[in-house]
Amino acid sequence: MAKRIDVSDLDIYYGNFKAVEGVNLSIEPRSITALIGPSGCGKSTFLRSLNRMHEVIPGARVEGKVVIDGQDLYGSDVDPVDVRRQIGMVFQRPNPFPTMSIYDNVVAGVRLNSTKMKRAALDDLVERSLRGANLWTEVKDRLDRPGAGLSGGQQQRLCIARAIAVEPAVLLMDEPCSALDPISTLAIEDLMTELKERFTIVIVTHNMQQAARVSESTGFFNLAGVGQPGRLVEFNPTEKIFSNPDQKATEDYISGRFG
């Protein structure tokens, strides 16, 4: 299921404003890739361009190529809805649907795919997904309660369960732990390490220890200057980035010597 992502010469625009420029990188299947960099440098924008979520903002467009296992995401015959069914996303703030129960939240994506499933199969899928998100034991007795009644960390794991229930090829995570306490963060990091057996994971994070702990490869984004587009400064194995980066800017950022 996990798939490889190749990005070449990707520019991302919001209207006339060029937000990200000239990104080239390859993301290996069954690995965790972390994207780090200062706020506003375009790493979230880049992440959202991987499942065409940035198009939600009017005027957003890209130039260049994003290829997932040979399929061009921005081909003229590609429907963004299909792209998003293949490439799941977890957001910064936990966002389970407040009007749905825990159960319905998990199967929300599956119901969209309009395949009629038997109740037993759905029950099975809910258990599998919640177990996959390490949430099953905590919620198995209250699946019919609203998802919004859970704690923040549980809500975020519910969102992960919802995302993996549709068996996506890739899982994108946009600062999934930034609203969580350290214990919940650890739970999610452990979960990511389990999930990379099945999915390709790309995570944006401001927490450099987190990037160092969980990821195989790390990309460092930075702005070329004020009002300039963000660029991918360096993309290397995580070990190398955090011990012996190629670029001076990367080293400065990681060691906290900024500017």
Partner: peptide, 19 residues
């Protein structure tokens, strides 16, 4: 937040409105 959650699951615009 919730509209994006629906869209990211692969909802069409009408499905997003329903969810």
């Amino acid at each position: 937040l919730h509209r994006e959650a629906a869209l990211a699951l692969g909802a069409t615009r009408w499905e997003m409105i329903k969810m």
